[in-house]
Simulated assay, not measured.
Amino acid sequence: MSSTSSSVLRAEHIWLDGKLVKWDEGSVHVMTHALHYGLGVFEGIRAYKTHDGRLAVFRLREHIRRLLDSAHIIMLHIPYTEDQLVEATLELLRQQKHLFANGAYLRPVAFMGDGAMGLGAVNPTRVAVTAWDWGAYLGDKGIREGIRAKVSSFTRMHVNVNMVRGKITGQYVNSILAKREAVLAGYDEAILLDISGFVAEASGENIFMVNKKGVIKTPPLSSPILDGITRDTVLKLLRDSGRVVDEVTFTRDALYICNEIFFTGTAAEITPVREVDNRQVGEGKPGPIGRFVQESYFKVVRGQDDRYADWLTYV
Rank of each mutant, 00 (worst) to 15 (best):
M157G: 10
I229Y: 05
Y314S: 10
L92E: 10
N123H: 13
K212P: 00
V30C: 12
I14S: 12
I74D: 05
V300P: 11
A254S: 07
D69V: 10
T155Y: 10
G113T: 09
A34I: 07
D69N: 12
P220D: 14
H29F: 13
K299L: 09
T266L: 04
D194C: 06
S175I: 03
T249P: 01
G118K: 08
E62M: 12
A136F: 00
R144Y: 00
L67Q: 14
N123G: 12
A101I: 00
A56C: 14
G53Q: 06
S6E: 05
W134Q: 09
F292V: 08
V234T: 06
L192G: 10
N160I: 15
D227P: 15
I229N: 06
A136D: 01
L67P: 09
K97C: 05
D140N: 06
F250Y: 07
V273T: 03
R274E: 07
E269W: 01
R231V: 07
E283T: 07
R54E: 15
R126H: 15
D232W: 07
R274Q: 13
D227V: 15
K285S: 08
T50D: 11
R252W: 10
V164S: 12
L92T: 00
G186K: 11
F111A: 08
D69G: 06
G197K: 06
M112L: 03
R243G: 00
A11C: 09
G186R: 05
W134A: 13
N211K: 05
A149I: 02
L68G: 06
T89V: 04
Q95Y: 04
G135W: 00
Q280A: 13
A268K: 03
G18W: 12
V281H: 01
Q294E: 12
T50C: 14
L39I: 00
F250Q: 04
T169P: 01
R252E: 04
G103I: 02
Q280G: 04
R165Q: 14
G290P: 01
G103D: 00
W15I: 15
